[in-house]
């Protein structure tokens, strides 16, 4: 790609960056407003957590996808991130797995 072509593409991207900036601001305000509303059953905030994390994930996608240019990156970077996602998911799975009562070995060990 020639320098002139490159500069032209970047110029077009600037407008996109500003739109995403607006979306991120709106996302932040929505996150705060939604936190004042209680979803689901009394005494449980599971749905609130899911809603907040869903909004955060959308914002994260916008930052990573457009500001970090992940939506148009090289295969090498996708490969690195795929490995990271695998290990990150494994870490979270182990966390959830360890919270199952049947896996709490240290609690089961309270035999006389």
């Amino acid at each position: 790609m020639s320098d002139a072509h490159d500069a032209q593409a970047v110029k077009a991207a600037v407008r996109k960056y500003l739109i995403i900036f607006g979306a991120l601001i709106v996302g932040t305000i929505v996150t705060v407003l939604v936190s004042f509303v209680h979803f689901g059953e009394e005494g449980s905030n599971t749905i609130n957590i899911l809603v907040a994390l869903a909004i955060a994930s959308v914002k994260a996608f916008l930052v990573a996808g457009y500001f970090m240019h992940l939506i148009s990156e090289r295969k090498m970077i996708y490969g690195i991130l795929l490995a990271t996602v695998f290990f990150f998911a494994g870490l979270m799975y182990l966390t959830v797995w360890s919270m199952e009562p049947v896996n709490l070995v240290h609690i089961k060990a309270d035999v006389p």
Partner: peptide
């Protein structure tokens, strides 16, 4: 340096609701 900065922003995007709002 910008990629690193965006990552710092990404972390905060999750920290803010988790610590302040939930």
């Amino acid at each position: 340096s910008g990629l690193f900065w965006h990552f710092v922003d990404l972390v905060w995007i999750f920290l803010f609701p988790v610590l302040y709002l939930l």
